[in-house]
Each structure stands twice: as C-alpha cells, then as structure tokens.
Write a protein that binds this DNA or RNA. Structure first.
Length: 425
RNA sequence: GGAGAGAUGGCCGAGAGGCUGAAGGCGCUGGUUUGCUAAACCAGUGUACGUCACAAGCGUACCGGGGGUUCGAAUCCCCCUCUCUCCGCCA
C-alpha cells in the first residue's frame, strides 16, 4: 500500500512512476477523497473539542443556573449529534479510501527497466554450461513417467488437472531437495527455519498483497474462511504483522518450506503437461525484514542465496531483471532466476526475488525502531524462492538425463537422496 | 462441543460517569551524587491522525473489537473476538 499523503502530495510523480507498469490507475479520485477526509477530520475534531471542554461548565451551571444549564446542554446535544454524523461519514470515507489504496500497485524502483512483457526483461547474468548430451533430451514428464516416479494420471484421478503423485525415488528426491535447501539456508546463509500454518486469515493475504485484487487466484475454505497459502511469503511475512521490531533486530532472515496452493485462474491451457504449473507444489522460501537504507543491498544477497542452490545442484541458469510491465503487484524490484530445461529447450522461472520496500509493511503494519525512544519506521520486506521444489526436480531430471533414460543425481544431493541415480544402471 | 473466568500503557497492577493518557510499582532513558559498579535522589518515558516544514507547539482519538445510553464513559447496556481453567472428543 502506498502512503496516502505521498500520493496526494505528489500526485503527478506517483502517476508517472506507476505508468512504468503499463496500466495507469486513476488516482484523481484518491486525492479528492484525501482532501475531503482532511476537511472532515478538522470539522469533527473542532466539534468534539467544544463538547468535551464544556463539561465543567455544565456542572457549574447545574448548580448556579439550572435553566442556563439546560440551554447549554441542548446546544451541546446538537453539536454532539452533528459530530457523530460527521464521524460516521468520515468512517465510510476512510474505508473507501483504504479500499481504493489497496488496489494501487507498488511504485517500481528507479532501476527497473522499461518494458511491457517478459520479452523485455534484460538478462543480468548467466551461469553454467548447457549440457550437450549427444541425443535428443526428453522433457521431464516423459522421463518421470518412464522411470515410474511421476504419476500424472493418478494425480488427476485423485484431484483433477494440475495435481501429480510422486512415487518412490521421485518422492524421495522431492523430500531430499527440501531438506537440502533448508539446510543450506539455515546453516550457511544465516536464515532461521520456520514451519508456519498453511491456512491463513484474509488479513494475512491482504498484508502481503494477494488480496483484495487477486482473490480468484487463491484456494480457500468455506467455514471458517481461511486461505491456503499460495507461498510461504504470506505466513512468514505476516509473522510480524502489527509489530514494532526491536532496535538492532534487523535484518531478520527466515526460511520456510511449505506446500503452495494456486488456482492458476488465468493460466488455462498453459503448461498443461509436467510439473511446471501445478495447483499444489512445494517451495522453500526466503523472507527478510531489512532497514530501508540497506534493502537493495540485501536483495542482491538474497538473490545470491537462491542462486547458490542452483549452482550446488549444477543447474545452468540466468538472472533477469523484471521490466515495469512484468513486475508483480507488490514488488518494487524483482530478479527472476530462470533455470535451463534441456527437454523443453528453454529457460523457465524457478525463483523470483523481490524487494517490496515498505509496501507490504504498510499493509501489514510492520515497523521497527532504530533505537530506544526513536520513532517507529516502516521496515522493508523482501523475499525470494530458494527454490521452487517441483520445478527444481523437473530441471534435475532434464539436466541429469542419460542416454539410457536414467537420471544422475548431483553430488551435493546424494547424502539426502541416498542414491546417485534413478533408473537402469 | 458444554461450563466458568478474564482482556487497562513495555511489564505488573489501580480505577467503578466528569479535569484520567489513565494512581502505584517494575523496566527503560537523561541528570545529580559517586574511586569503579551498585544504591539513592530528580526528571522523562505510548501510538495514530489533524494543523505544520512528515520540527516544536497545539488539537483529537485510543483502557480486546464494534454498537448504544448520556451534555460527558476505561467506568452503565448490547453484540463479537481472543486468552485461560474444567468436562467431552481427538493426532
């Protein structure tokens, strides 16, 4: 959520920066409502001041001059009624205002490149050699089915499209990846492991920006209404909702594995095969709370921590910087990590690392204090996938495939899998 | 799911219609005193919004949340939420 004051005081600048995203939201209404809000607050407070400060006079007059007291009380009654009406209107206005503000996306950082789609995302760097196997590499779903470790048919039988069953070494590989990633982040990158609830309140979804605008993307329960987390970002960022963090607590780094549940409402017909786009998938997430002045430095570090996983697994990838048109609703700046998928002959997003600046902090009211007695300030929140586990498994199959159809497991993962190869020797 | 108890400032804890942002204590910060530390004493110590230079000052609100009564409510009435205890059930 943007700061109302900043929006109304610097309307043109806000509009111009938002335009980088492509669609320009109409902020005129916002500034008009903001102006009316100020006027009403002033009027209401003046009235209330009159009513409240007249108390002693009423008491005195009741003893000395009862008729005058009655007259005064009548006047005050009228003022009180008017004040309450004003307050009620003001409340409605503020709800309307807050609601409008919740639909305005974050301002892109000045370093965000111009552009309208993912085709415009500049490549920042690449890592690793693409394998040249000397045979036609297969997509991961063919490999997985042939090896008996991915069962798409039964997944669909159980739960419909975009659900998959992992079997035997496939299930073990998924579990190994989760443990491996969590171990690296906790032991070597300094993150604290969190195991959060997978169902959260509407309030939490709003805090990170999934709601109210993107409700059709979320799964939810009916009674009581709870949302299945679309990413661990939601519960972990909301860990500190409505809190003022202690001086010196920053940066706070958390990592969490959760399943992620997504409706994929707008993606009908896309990536229908394989593990790329599932309604349920595992992800290890990195979440960070940082001081404003260091958040961009921290974004580079966090992105590096996600990259480290890919490197250790020997998966070639590239880093792109999302252009204005491709930037997510809440993000001020985002790097996507794209892993090379030989079977698909393309790079696919496997991690998205973003700085949200104070956008989520405002929505979720997360603040920090620089020292004893200093005023609370909004923290900056960041997060990144470290990594999407299902897609990592898919990439591992495609990159590790051998001529005989077996798949080699990278060295770093073998202590976790307990095997070094899937399939015929 | 049933029965009961409770929700006040960073913490503990008063308060029972008016001048209470809220006694008292603890903690914290600054100062005085002081070989050092400690103790003692003095002062200060919430958040949000409005005005304004997002300063100072001033104003308004906030005693779990919402609504009501009243000239006026932390204090009276209604609804809700959460926490704790006991019973039931369960992994």
């Amino acid at each position: 959520m943007l700061d109302l004051r900043a929006v109304t005081d610097r309307l043109e600048e806000t509009q111009r920066r938002l335009a980088l995203r492509g669609d320009v939201p109409a902020l005129g209404k916002l500034s008009e409502l903001g102006g009316r809000r100020r006027a009403w607050i002033r009027e209401s407070e003046d009235l209330r001041h009159e009513v409240k400060s007249s108390g002693p006079r009423v008491q005195a007059l009741m003893k000395s001059d009862p008729p005058a007291a009655a007259a005064l009380r009548e006047r005050l009654k009228a003022a009180s009624v008017r004040q309450k009406e004003l307050e009620a209107s003001l409340k409605e206005l503020e709800i309307e205002l807050a609601q409008a503000l919740l639909y305005v996306p974050n301002l892109p950082h000045e370093s965000v490149p111009a552009g309208t789609s993912s085709a415009d995302n500049p490549v920042v760097r690449t890592w690793g050699e693409r394998p040249a196997p000397g045979f036609q590499p297969k997509p991961h779903w063919e490999l997985g089915e042939a090896l008996g470790i991915l069962d798409f048919e039964r997944g669909a039988k159980l739960s419909g499209s975009r659900f998959t069953v992992l079997v035997g070494q496939g299930a073990r590989l998924e579990r190994a990846l989760i443990s491996f990633m969590l171990d690296v982040h906790t032991r070597e990158h300094g993150y604290t492991e969190i195991l959060p609830p997978y169902l959260v309140l509407r309030e939490s979804m709003q805090g990170t920006g999934q709601l109210p605008k993107f409700e059709e993307d979320a799964f939810k329960t009916v009674d009581p209404e709870l949302f299945l987390v679309p990413t661990a970002e939601v519960p972990v960022t909301n860990l500190h909702r409505d809190e003022i963090l202690e001086a010196g607590a920053l940066p706070l780094r958390y990592t969490a594995h959760t399943p992620c549940f997504r409706r994929e409402a707008g993606a009908a017909g896309r990536d229908t095969r394989g593990l790329i786009r599932q309604h349920q998938f595992n992800k290890v997430e990195l979440v960070e709370f940082a001081a404003p002045e260091s958040s961009y430095q921290e974004l580079e570090k966090l992105t590096g921590h996600a990259e480290d996983i890919l490197r250790r697994l020997g998966l070639p990838y590239r880093v792109v910087s999302l252009c204005g048109g491709d930037l997510g609703f809440s993000a001020a700046k985002t790097y996507d990590l794209e892993v090379w998928m030989p079977g698909l002959d393309t790079f696919r997003e496997i991690s998205s690392c973003s700085n949200f600046e104070d956008f989520q902090a405002r929505r979720a009211r997360i603040r920090f204090r620089r020292g004893e007695g200093s005023k609370p300030e909004w923290v900056h929140t960041l997060n990144g996938s470290g990594l999407a586990v299902g897609r990592t498994l898919a990439a591992l199959l495609e990159v590790g495939q051998q001529a005989d159809g077996s798949v080699l497991i990278p060295e770093a993962l073998r202590p976790y899998t307990g095997f070094e190869r899937i399939g015929p020797r």
